[in-house]
Design a protein around this nucleic acid. Sequence first.
RNA 1: GGACCGGUAGUUCAGUUGGUUAGAACGCUGCCCUGUCAAGGCAGAGGUCACGAGUUCGAGCCUCGUCCGGUCCGCCA
Length: 589
Amino acid sequence: MHEYRTHTCNQLRKADNGSTIKISGWIHNRRDHGGVLFIDVRDHYGITQVVVYPEAPFQYEIGHLPKETVVSFVGVVMLRSAENSNPKMETGEIEIKASSFTILGPAEPVPFPVFPEEIAPEDMRLKHRYLDLRRSKLHQNIILRSKVISSMRKRMIDFGFTEFQTPILTSSSPEGARDYLVPSRVHPGSFYALPQAPQQFKQLLMCSGFDRYFQIAPCFRDEDARADRSPGEFYQLDIEMSFVTQEDIFKTLEELLHGIFSEFSTMQATPPPFPRIPYRQSMLKYGCDKPDLRIPIEIRDVSDIFATADFKAFKETVESKGVVRAIPVKNIASQPRSFFDKLVEYAQSIGSKGLAYLVWSEEKVKGPLAKFLSDDNMKNIASRCDVGLGDVVFFVAAQEHEANKISGDLRTKLGNDLNIIDKSIFKFCWIVDFPMFELDPETQKPVFSHNPFSMPQGGLEALLSQDPLTILAYQYDIVCNGIELSSGAIRNHRPDVMYKAFEIAGYDKSVVDAKFPALIQAFRYGAPPHGGIAPGVDRIVMLLAGEQNIREVIAFPMNQKAQDLLMNAPSPVTDKQLKELSIRVTPIA
RNA sequence: GGACCGGUAGUUCAGUUGGUUAGAACGCUGCCCUGUCAAGGCAGAGGUCACGAGUUCGAGCCUCGUCCGGUCCGCCA
């Protein structure tokens, strides 16, 4: 017989009745009936019930081992009677009558229970992550992650992509997030940087003619964490394709994402093609560039109506180049007064001066705004917002940027509070037509609004002839249920267009040459038109696992302060190490 | 860097207007129990109420400060 096991804990079935077997695993749970003693033994695969009768000389010992001790049992597979079967367990129709046991890995009492699964403090979970990872939910999340990545890889290869590895020790890029720096021993005073993304490498690979690149790529950014943003490091399914238009990339990603989400979830995912929403339209209708399309509310602009209406506060806002936005909500006219009061309070807490609203009730249109508006105004609003009896429209007046944010936050809050979000679907969309440039609020000069490497729509001609602020980029985001999975772009692969774009953003040729020497040189020797995208693996798994926090799908995540509580990183190093690196640590006053 | 919420037993939490000895469940220890599967029953151990100062006759509760944690804003080309 094998030293440790003949079967896993999720292998034995009715057909094995009578076999003498050996299983090993953790003591998951124990039920001591005085006479008969039940032990649930757990391994990676599942749970099997072991029964120990009073005749067994080791009954007392096994009944008093701490839970989570690793043991191995030899015994005979017995059928359970119908009333003693457990339909909730895959092995629930059998049990093992133990004839001997061995302690393989003694255990001390655990600091928090592996079973039943309770929510332990997160710092303790992270400190004892090996225990936390035994919990079924987390264990399954990590398995799901592995399967999702494996499926991504298979699908990409089936699509004709080639997988690459790009350097982890690379150079600091002056744009974007803060870099993690690694000192060089051989070159005192010089530093490597960990890649924020393999952006330039994948573009260089296109210049090398590889045509279709992908990588399950680790990315490093020294920025603060969020619930959906792990600090320090994360993984992207990094993709780049040559001789493609934006639509070609969309088509590939739609097939990939719809395939993955359909494979790993029973929830319905948007079938291709995903809706394409221009950036400006998204900012208006949803107040943000990562809309949760499950919320059945669309914001409308009503600035023109209030420009002529007799409500001073809104009229003045419009006259000072602000906007008035309407948030129509169906069937909430009967909500109690407190509902509206709380919403007004919330609006003020996120920076709105107030929150006016109109209620289409039985007799007439009511609400704080009603007395200032003519019947015509009301009619126009109702038709613009597509509301009628029983509906309510909220109004936000502010400068455009602020109005977008406030109305978008209100839309999300209304969606959550009114419980009108369909939690059983994945709603995908593309946000397209991001502006190439925007005005720097301080200098009032154009700066790159998102990605300086994106190709401007209209190419060089647009850069030469259009107002920079009207130029759109072949730049896009893929969004699912209000979570941004990735940005992407058709890249600017023409040196002349690149220099011109940077010139508009206030950088001369030498700056481009100095900042991006490899790329700009590569583009000089024949670069194919190319573009790509890089959906976040962690976020995709988070959505598929139904988790609210990205740490629940990462085996060894850092905490919000970018500390690894398990390995105790970051931590000071020895003077010898510092000396080798020509580094002296000095507090900065 | 900023805002908000939180910190009470190993764990999850309750703790009334500031008032006697700070409670429950799970876990742990002991005992009872031969069919449970979140087993059940009885008993027991287990507390610097995050820390410090203040108000008060009296503070888990009120005030201020500090620390720790989470969420959000900034940040994330």
